[in-house]
Design a protein around this nucleic acid. Sequence first.
DNA 1: GCCAACGTTGGC
DNA 2: GCCAACGTTGGC
Length: 141
Amino acid sequence: MAYWLFKSEPDVFSFDDLIAKGDKGEQWDGVRNYQARNNMRAMKVGERGFFYHSNIGKEVVGICEVVAPAHPDSTADDPKWECVDLKAVAWVKTAVTLDDAKAEPRLAEMILVNNSRLSVQPVSDAEWQVILDMAGGTRAI
DNA sequence: GCCAACGTTGGC
DNA sequence: GCCAACGTTGGC
């Protein structure tokens, strides 16, 4: 079971917005980057990822789950751009900020810390656990 | 609002 | 196929 991280600017699409979509979730559209798309192609239904607020907050705020495998992005004019569907699963108890992650030696290799521009990225099992611990676990949405 | 980092495009 | 120019992202 792989873990992931999804970035969004909260004034465009926040974790609250994803919660509002309910169990059916919402397609993670708008990605126009090959690396990010390839990461989504590798996802399986049921896999989970962190939801990260970029620009405003710069913190991991929640956990989401893949509810549909990669399919063409309906907002793209070229079918080569694909996306998965996501639903919200839980809040983290305490948001983990980018500063927190940078200050944690066990996260030194994390893509979030090293490549700020990749919007959909894999997270290792170890990194997943470290961030969950830093967040003090989760709470219900 | 600025700018560094990165990815993509297009001329050669 | 290289590389300069350009556009975009996202931290500061």
